[in-house]
């Protein structure tokens, strides 16, 4: 167990910079975007009007097509006339939308890291050093997967919290006078963070076959692991489509990349005023009822076993 924790630390040392900086860059973009909105440019326009010491807000109709814009509009137009429960639900929904870009950053960086992990160590021959340590290939592979699936998201979580607080504060300055504190109290930040944590826990199992596939390709390919990782499943999808007119492989891949357990993901493309992006914990576990989930576990474990075998027999390129 101690060895395994040390291996996670090793992964941490290799990846913490990229996992800290990539969400920070995205956060900076959100801040710039948010300030631009508040500043009155962009597709969604706010205007503060000071009449009789009461602020009111005008929202440009162009914002109507934008999910985030409509969510904001819904909140901003009438905080006072909204019940606490409703406000909490709406705010949680909004807070759940904020991490969406961070999920994708995590996914892209993780896939990149997985495709590089066994390939790079073979290319620079450091695999010979790693293998000269009393660490088994199984421990090595599992630690790489576990780090990217479950530990790396925690690095992102801090930045997500900062982004959520930023948006909350931004909204507090925009809503009706005296409603700022009420908005903060029902901001949904804590609930959202908890749901994100649960979401990532589940999501680690959902992405298993995709992540394990990337490790396998990384251990197998002599060059261009990224090309192989995409080309092989893409070819299978095309072949299946031509041969059987089916899309089982495609839907399998889409399911396992959907990040469906993460709050906010299921609401993409849906009306945030309807069900909203608010998620119940039960909804985060819906994937368990899907056969794709269990099939993914089996396939993923198979890929992991293959990756362990390749780590054992393959050395420098």
């Amino acid at each position: 167990m101690n060895t395994f924790i040390s291996l996670l630390k090793r992964e941490w040392l290799e990846y913490y910079r990229v996992f800290m900086w990539s969400p920070i860059v995205v956060f900076a973009l959100i801040v710039i975007f948010g300030l631009t909105l508040a500043g009155g440019s962009g597709s969604l326009q706010f205007e503060r009007v000071d009449s009789q010491n009461e602020r009111s807000i005008q929202i440009d109709a162009q914002g109507g097509d934008d999910a985030l814009g409509r969510a904001l509009a819904g909140l901003l137009l009438d905080v006072e006339g909204t019940t606490d429960t409703e406000l909490s639900a709406r705010m949680t929904g909004l807070m759940n939308l904020i991490p969406l870009p961070f999920y994708y950053v995590w996914l892209v960086v993780s896939l990149y890291g997985l495709l590089a992990c066994l390939h790079n160590e073979r290319r620079d021959r450091s695999v010979l050093f790693w293998k000269s340590m009393p660490v088994s290939d199984l421990q090595t592979i599992v630690s790489k997967f576990a780090f990217l699936a479950w530990i790396a998201p925690l690095l992102t979580l801090g930045v997500i919290l900062a982004a959520q607080l930023f948006v909350t504060v931004l909204l507090m300055t925009l809503v009706e006078q005296g409603m700022g504190t009420r908005l903060l109290l029902h901001s949904g930040v804590l609930m959202s963070l908890l749901q994100i944590l649960v979401g990532f826990l589940m999501n680690g199992f959902v992405v298993l076959p995709v992540f394990a596939w990337c490790i396998l390709v990384s251990g197998w390919a002599k060059s261009m692991p990224m090309m192989w990782a995409f080309a092989v499943p893409l070819s299978l999808v095309v072949v299946e489509n031509i041969m059987t007119d089916g899309d089982r492989i495609a839907s399998f891949i889409v399911f396992h990349l959907s990040m469906a357990s993460l709050p906010g993901m299921s609401s993409i493309g849906e009306d945030p005023f309807g069900k909203g992006a608010a998620t119940t914990f039960a909804e985060q576990f819906v994937v368990l009822g899907d056969a794709q989930f269990w099939l993914g576990l089996v396939v993923g474990l198979g890929f992991l076993a293959g990756a362990v075998y390749l780590r054992r027999v393959r050395n420098e390129i």
Partner: peptide, 23 residues
């Protein structure tokens, strides 16, 4: 091949080129 992890507790190794992780 079967017990590498256990065996490497008692075997030290230096290769012909730098194999320490550069990062």
């Amino acid at each position: 091949m079967l017990q590498r992890a256990k065996m490497m507790q008692s075997v030290a190794y230096i290769a012909d080129t730098g194999i320490l992780p550069s990062w």
